[in-house]
């Protein structure tokens, strides 16, 4: 049986797809057969971040409607042969998703894969609801920013009430915090919410902090999940996150950041 992970946030632009791509690649690189599904029907982007946009033939909706088999629609990743991508449809809208259809696809994927990563769309509409409905674990991607924290809290409410686990009175979805686009120097100068502030409000198990990093844009420009950029801080942060999720103990990094002598003297303004 596969473990189903939803990557969610409520708010858009916080790094859900970047995170989904990175952790799916990380899990596969660790030897676990992993599938990643784009739930953002009508606005698919995961294919771009994974660099497989020109290899999309069939999509998630085709599989739900029986127009293609799962094996026809899955795209094997070019960097890791244990990773498969199921792209969203670009021409349909979110109403093409159905609870039963999504359930059937996940069930079939569960036979073959160890992990299924569901990249949720922003918002709290159908796509987002269905992405979380069947989840076992939730990665709540949050920026240290007021509207993102609020939306994350709203998502936590939905995770605990609108999932299949909640409906069946099963053990609740395991929720983890991923604090992304964190800028330690701005935290230090008091212009950005600190990890502790966010934790005081959300009180979730912290899976990791991803510092604001130029390499995220570079990676998405090239269509390579940032976790493969092992030299970058963001890549290392995601590496840590995957290891922690798999049960490894790793000290948290990127909370304090590096500070040069001049910055200490004149204040960090980057």
């Amino acid at each position: 049986m596969a473990r189903i992970i939803v990557v969610t946030s409520g708010k858009g632009g916080v790094g859900k797809t970047t995170t989904s791509a990175a952790i799916a690649m990380g899990l596969a690189k660790k030897g676990h057969k992993t599938a990643i599904i784009d739930f953002d029907v009508g606005l698919r982007n995961l294919d771009l971040i994974m660099g497989c946009e020109r290899r999309v033939v069939y999509d998630f909706i085709n599989v739900i409607n029986g127009e293609a088999s799962i094996s026809q629609a899955l795209i094997r990743d070019k960097n890791c042969n244990l990773l498969y991508i199921l792209p969203a449809s670009q021409t349909r809208d979110k109403d093409a998703l159905s609870k039963e259809g999504v359930g059937r696809v996940l069930e079939e994927l569960s036979q073959e894969f160890k992990y299924i990563v569901c990249d949720s769309p922003a918002g709290i509409e159908k796509g987002a609801n269905l992405a979380l409905y069947y989840a076992d674990d939730a990665f709540v991607v949050t920026n240290p920013e007021i509207s993102s924290v609020r939306d994350s809290d709203r998502m936590l409410g939905l995770l605990s009430s609108k999932s299949r686990r909640a409906e069946r009175n099963e053990e609740p979805i395991k929720e983890y915090l991923l604090l992304t686009r964190y800028d330690p120097s701005r935290v230090k100068s008091g212009e950005m919410l600190a990890l502790d502030d966010v934790q005081e409000i959300l009180s979730l198990q912290l899976l990791g902090i991803v510092p604001e990093s130029k390499s995220v844009l570079t990676a998405s420009n090239a269509g390579i999940p940032v976790i493969l950029d092992e030299k970058s801080e963001a890549g290392q942060a995601y590496e840590d996150i995957v290891a922690r999720y798999l049960g490894e103990e790793r000290p948290h990094r990127f909370i304090d950041g590096k500070r040069g002598f001049l910055k200490m003297l004149f204040g960090g303004r980057s």
Partner: peptide, 25 residues
């Protein structure tokens, strides 16, 4: 930092954000 020392001490925006969030949430 040295410059912080000379800056007028007003409440940091992050602590305002935190307070607003706590009430709202």
């Amino acid at each position: 930092s040295l410059l912080d020392y000379f800056r007028a001490s007003k409440p940091k925006s992050a602590s305002i954000a935190k307070e607003r969030l706590q009430i709202l949430v």
